[in-house]
Design a protein around this nucleic acid. Structure first.
Lengths: 159, 159
DNA sequence: GCACAAACAGGAAATATTCTTATGTTCGCG
DNA sequence: CGCGAACATAAGAATATTTCCTGTTTGTGC
């Protein structure tokens, strides 16, 4: 669903509002978009169908759930053959502590966003699950001290 | 709202469901949690109030909105004095292309997640907004080739 | 140029569903 | 036995969703 779609100004207003406030009611959304409820809902459904809206999620407070640690890991592999890349991706996909995995260009092959309950459990995760994984050449990790900006998605220009 | 809160198994079920599916109806959520609607809604409201649920967001398809490029930028500053760190954070907060800004330990001071319409607009953003910013010592950027995992938030263990 | 039909998008009204509040009821505990 | 906490039931209000209708635009044939 790569969704090439002609998005007009009303669609963008809707998308921006839903990205900011995913549980806004359709009535309020329609008001913001300058529509009545039915056509607004039709547009939302069409945007979902087309894959422009991929999903909806609650953003949770990690510390409240016992996750006090967030780490970025820069991983380099020994082989960059497609099969080996896939194998690594499959491996990290199966690890719940790994929340994001992005393949990069340059010397670093992957950057991972990892969460953990505390430093100790992160260390044990690192040495038991990540560093010894097949084909891993090097792992450099950096602890997050604080996050000053964490906006979802992309800017939605009114246009 | 750092929210220390005793979360029982039902709360965790609710949080997990909302993190996965932010627009689930309270009726369905209650069914999953093994409750009727009213106590389920009370719990959701309490979790929102306590800051365990911070917000809700639609996840949008970036390419559909014309954002084909995602980049990680590793930034080092000349001074790590708190005022200088804050100044840099304030600066990137004002840049819509920068979606995330995390302060790290070690040699790299910040990692930024940046989106752009294309390589050209990213280059111009980089050279006009980021590299020449006050106190910036070095910026290393890595283009995202593909993202194989992009899960929201944290794992929610049933416990 | 003009009439017409088809396709499209929005609005109004009606219905179904959900949310929300008020009011009992049960259970565990002191 | 009384109390408080948490849930269920029930009712009313708000919302979502469907259906149908209207206006506009587009393209076509005369």
């Amino acid at each position: 669903m790569a969704a090439r779609f002609p998005l007009d100004s009303i669609d963008r207003t809707i998308l921006s509002a839903l990205q900011d406030e995913g549980r806004i009611t359709n009535v309020d959304l329609a008001r913001q978009a300058g529509l009545t409820a039915p056509p607004c809902l039709r547009r939302v459904r069409a945007l979902e169908q087309a894959g422009v809206i991929e999903s909806y999620h609650a953003k949770l407070n990690a510390p409240s759930l016992g996750y006090g640690i967030m780490v970025f890991a820069m991983v380099s592999l020994r082989s960059q053959a497609e099969d080996d890349l896939r194998a690594f991706e499959d491996h990290v996909t199966s690890l719940p502590e790994v929340r994001e995995c992005h393949m990069l260009n340059g010397e670093i092959d992957f950057i991972l966003k990892i969460v953990a309950h505390d430093l100790q459990s992160f260390q044990s995760f690192l040495t038991s699950q990540l560093t010894p994984a097949p084909n891993v050449a090097s792992v450099k990790t950096s602890l997050t001290i604080r996050t000053s900006k964490d906006n979802p998605g992309v800017p939605v220009d009114p246009e």
